[in-house]
Amino acid sequence: MSNIRVLLVDDHDMVRLGVRTYLMTEPDIEIVGEAGSGEEGVKRVSELGPDVVLMDLVMGGIDGVEATRRVLAERPQTKVLVLTSFLEDDKVLPALEAGASGYQLKTVLGEELATSIRKVHRGETVLEPQVAAKVVANLQKPKSPTPTAETLTEREMDVLRLIGRGMTNQQIGETLYIGIKTVKTHVSNILAKLGVEDRTQAAILAIRNGWVDAESKKG
C-alpha cells in the first residue's frame, strides 16, 4: 500500500518544522511539500497532487477557508484537514462548509494528528471534540423562517412583480406613478424582508415561488 502523501500549509516556519519532524517518523505518511501561504498552497496542490492537505486557517493573503475552497475545486479527491489554533464559529463553520474533512487544534498530540490524517484519507470526517460540539449546536439552532409573499405589503408586491419583469427603478416608478426615491425605499424593504442581497436574487425568488405570474414573466 502506498504512503499517504501530505502537503503542509502554514505561514509559520516553526509550526511546519514541528509537524514535519513528527510525521516523518510515521512509516505510512510522506511529506511531499510545504507552503507558507494559502495562494502557495493552492499552487502546490496543483503541482504535487497530495492525498491530504494540512491547512492552517489564518494566513496572509487568502485564508485557509478560501484556500480550502480553491484546493477542492482544483482537485476534489484531495482531503483537507484543518490544523489551527482557532475555535471561533466564524472559523469552524466556514471551513467545514468549504469542504474540509477534518478540524484539529494545534494542541493535538502527534499520534492523534497522524491518526486524523489516516482517517480523512479513508474518507472519514474527523472533528476535535469542541468543534464537534459547535457543529451540533449550530444544527440545533432554530432555522430562519422561509420568506413568504405574506411578509410584503401590497405595494411591495407590485414592485417585486415589476422587478421580476426586469424593470429598472425608473421604469417601476413610471408604471406605478410613484417617485424613484419611493421605489428605492420599497426595493430596500423587499430585500430586507426576503433576506436577499440584491434585486436579481429577489426576482429569482419571486419567480421560483410563483409570486410573479406567467404574464408578468413574459414582460
Rank of each mutant, 00 (worst) to 15 (best):
L96R: 00
Y22L: 06
V108C: 15
V15I: 14
V53F: 01
L105V: 03
K181G: 15
L93R: 06
L54Q: 09
L152C: 00
T115C: 11
L57W: 00
Q170A: 08
M14T: 03
Q171M: 11
P142D: 10
E74I: 13
M24Y: 10
P27I: 00
K134A: 06
G173S: 11
T185R: 01
E34H: 04
E74F: 08
V71N: 10
L93T: 09
N138L: 05
D51I: 04
Y22C: 13
V135H: 04
I190E: 02
M59I: 08
N189Q: 12
E26T: 07
A214D: 13
I163L: 09
V71C: 09
M59R: 01
S144E: 15
E174I: 00
V126N: 03
V58N: 09
V135N: 11
T125S: 14
A214E: 13
I190Q: 10
M1T: 04
K184T: 14
L113S: 13
T151D: 15
V187I: 12
R75K: 14
A137K: 03
K134V: 10
V45L: 01
L17Q: 12
E40F: 05
A67V: 10
L54S: 06
A35K: 01
E47W: 00
A133H: 06
G33H: 04
T200Q: 08
G219H: 02
A35G: 01
R155L: 14
Q77H: 12
Q171A: 15
K217I: 03
G219D: 11
V42S: 05
L162I: 00
H186G: 04
Y22D: 06
L7A: 10
L54H: 03
L139H: 11
L96S: 08
G210H: 02
A202H: 01
T175Q: 07
I190V: 08
A214M: 04
K217W: 08
G123Y: 03
N169W: 00
L72W: 03
Y177H: 13
I163P: 13
T146D: 14
L194N: 09
E156D: 05
G61S: 07
K217Q: 12
A137V: 07
I178V: 10
E88H: 07
R5D: 15
P50C: 01
K119L: 10
K218D: 04
Y177W: 10
E97M: 05
T146H: 11
H186A: 05
L8D: 08
G110K: 07
V159Y: 07
V92I: 14
A202Q: 04
Q171D: 11
V135L: 06
Y177L: 11
L194G: 02
E128I: 02
S144V: 15
K217L: 13
A137M: 12
E128M: 08
V45H: 04
P94F: 07
E40R: 05
L152F: 10
D158E: 15
A137R: 15
A214R: 05
L105M: 15
R20D: 02
R165P: 09
S144F: 12
K218M: 03
L57V: 13
I62R: 00
L81C: 10
A35C: 11
A98R: 00
G36P: 00
V32F: 12
Q201H: 11
R165F: 11
N169L: 09
E88F: 12
D213L: 01
K193M: 13
E34W: 01
V71S: 01
L205M: 14
T175S: 15
G41I: 08
Y22N: 08
I163K: 09
E215T: 09
I62H: 01
K141L: 15
L87E: 14
S188D: 08
